[in-house]
Amino acid sequence: MSEGFGGGFRPRGDRDDRGDRGDRGDREGGYRGGRDRDRAPMTAKGRLRAKARKKARKAAKKKGGAFGRKKVCRFCADQGAKIEYRDPKTLRYFMTETGKLIPSRISGNCARHQRSVSLAIKRARQLALMPYAPSHV
């Protein structure tokens, strides 16, 4: 069973996902965080996730340009661009015609910039610079 599971991947210990806790005299207990810690023994869930990631990467490679291009966050690409609530012109780009926020999944914003965009839009709405809803329905 352990063979089929990892698809060739072998956990470091001989006891599969539970790791070999018994014979690690060198690890003096406690979590040794940071980048350069030894590879922690993987959990079953973690392994599954890793597998899923790998699969996704492969699939993305295969499809190539056929499906979605890799989106780039506008504000990461252009460091000079600022997100300001007084600038409804740029913010309008991240809003639908019905006045809803466009999710980052579609606009391609990174998480950080999406946060500041949504905050800016909300502020602009309070000041009547941007609409809450379309002007006539």
Binding site: R86, R125, L127, A128, L129, M130, P131, Y132, S135
Partner: peptide
């Protein structure tokens, strides 16, 4: 004076100051 995105107290425009 700028146009408001929506009416406030029945005003279509507003004078913005910061």
């Amino acid at each position: 004076k700028r146009r408001l995105a929506y009416e406030i107290k029945h005003f279509q425009k507003g004078h913005y100051l910061t």
